[in-house]
Design a protein around this nucleic acid. Structure first.
Lengths: 334, 334
DNA sequence: CCCTTCTGGTTTATCGTTAATCCGCCACGA
DNA sequence: TCGTGGCGGATTAACGATAAACCAGAAGGG
């Protein structure tokens, strides 16, 4: 491995001069600079980032730690990456693994210290894990659960979004709307907020939400939703609308309905949450709550960059707005 | 920041002893070990990974560098992550950015050196970029294009998969099958291989592939496919089958067909490639080529671990098998 | 009684950078 | 003529850890 001191010797200058030429942090005379660059070229020198990081105390890298690389998180990551790069830093993704041992690894203080800043999606985390995360480092939490006040935090307007979607279903004539994936007992996750929005919409419409229509899911996959909706249909529970807590679950519901010959939106109307790219193209098009990915990303990056710049401004807890995108899975306005 | 030397002083031992206690690399007497651990606890010491990396020459981290965080790549990442963790290392994802400047960043030698090993998806890379990547570091290339022999390389059986899907369409009665996303002129990407498989299937069935049915796409998104298929329909070009080079494009095709009242699979049969999770749930279920994600991941990890272990075995170029998953978008066997 | 071996620990020498200082030189104004 | 102030560059001293060599003392063998 060729080091900076090799280059310095070759160019007949000190290491600091080489460093200054490469980083541009101090002015270096033209002829000297040329000699250094020539030496770099001829030796094929490449800076050792690890050494730079140790000495400089920066890694110029930001991590986004998510429970899965799919769907919602991929969308967010795609939006955050260019913003971070615009700030001269690099974004990497890490996954909080399913298995508990590696989970602690990702969230361990030493690993977090490897980054200038961290976006941490709290979806899969339990309270203990969150408590162990130091608030000293620049960290912005993303996600729906309640978090300690000592963190910056960006979340969607889950209640509002769920209310929008449900109100839309009601307005278009649905009267018995499943809350697919809503949790029955109050929890701290998005499923509870979105269920609350579902209930609110009913009350605002002068209706009483029927708790029997809340269908909980073990995980928010298409498969689980497919299974759950299939069972509701088999049980003969009547319903004419489905609000799925995310689009992936909506796909599962759509499949279950279609398989049994239930027409969407004629017999059952369907709305989801997340507005994934593909939701627009899945016939008949899934009506969905758009989380405003760009706003989420921009807000999160703003908070993190401020923290990385050393600000000790009070922590912010931001709720970003959402909007409803109407598609073929709900009936057109009359 | 509390360092190892603080701990050493507190415990009344040398730094090396602290290091040995924490890494377990050498035996340390019971009472001494206890004193060290107590000091670690009371000071709240956490190892500095950057310093360890500099000294030890390992980062215990592996990177997966992909052009996008979506779909196929998310699936692969989900499979690779646990395998890498089983080897005691960490997986991080990086994206080769759209914009050229940061693209070079991700692939620069210094950044690659940050990792013990790298999986590099070559989908978005041009030849020059690949040439600049050093073959000295442990690198395994993933993806469809031809790559220099100096790299280990894992690719799918694209030709075989496309042939399977197309043969299936022909066998079920389709006679004019669009190659959606196939490139007309031979390129080095997957689109060219998959188009070749499409043509092979025709010849094997005693048919002549009609080049007019090859519909190229600017990018392999649902949106582009939706647009392209819509135009083919508007032009009145007759067809009764679609082989889409990936499932995302298949969704776009399905949307375009459905919007115009063309029934799938009765009037047009449809098959895709990638077998995404959601493909199973998009009515009527997308027939798709399954890339065997587990095999791809296992193979790639095997190659990389061998390389990280220092082996100088000859480079391998592995093509992994695929299989067809039949669903409702093609007609049932008669 | 001396020599080897083992155990548990310390010392020394870096890993490859960069922040902070320092230094010699020339130019310039009073 | 002498201070004053850049400018270009070299020196010094870490950043926080670990590999390798070294060493004191106890134990065991002939």
């Amino acid at each position: 491995m060729v080091t900076m001191s090799d280059v310095a010797r070759e160019a007949g200058v000190s290491m600091m001069t080489v460093s200054n030429v490469l980083t541009g942090r101090k002015r270096v005379g033209e002829p000297t600079r040329d000699r250094v660059l020539a030496a770099v070229e001829s030796l094929g020198y490449e800076v050792n980032l690890t050494a730079r990081h140790l000495r400089a105390g920066r890694t110029d890298t930001v991590a986004l730690i998510v429970p899965s690389f799919h769907d919602y998180f991929a969308e967010v990551a795609d939006r955050i990456a260019p913003l971070i790069e615009a700030g001269g830093r690099h974004l990497v993704l890490e996954r909080t693994s399913a298995d508990a041992r590696s989970e602690m690894e990702s969230l361990s203080v030493p690993r977090l210290q490897m980054y200038d800043g961290v976006f941490l999606s709290v979806a899969g985390l339990d309270g203990d894990e969150l408590d162990r995360v130091p608030a000293s480092a620049p960290i912005v939490l993303l996600g729906e659960r309640e978090v300690p006040a000592r963190f910056d935090h960006v979340r969607l307007d889950n209640v509002g979004g769920a209310r929008l979607a449900t109100a839309h279903l009601l307005e278009r004539g649905a009267r018995r709307v499943l809350a697919l994936g809503g949790s029955v007992e109050p929890s701290t996750g998005m499923e509870s907020d979105r269920r609350a929005g579902w209930a609110e919409a009913h009350r605002e419409a002068g209706l009483t939400p029927d708790e029997d229509l809340v269908v909980s899911l073990d995980d928010f996959t298409a498969e689980a939703a497919h299974h759950a909706v299939g069972r509701v249909l088999d049980d003969g529970v009547p319903f004419d609308g489905v609000f799925a807590v995310n689009d992936t679950a909506a796909f599962g519901a759509l499949a279950a309905l279609t398989e049994r010959g239930v027409s969407v939106p004629d017999q059952v109307q369907l709305a989801g949450f997340d507005n994934l790219d593909v939701s627009r193209f899945v016939p008949p098009g899934i009506t969905s709550v758009d989380p405003g990915y760009d706003v989420v990303a921009a807000t999160a990056v703003r908070l993190l960059e401020r923290r990385m710049a050393g600000s000790d401004a009070p922590r912010e807890h931001v709720t970003t707005p959402v909007r409803l995108v109407e598609r073929g899975s709900t009936r057109p306005d009359v």
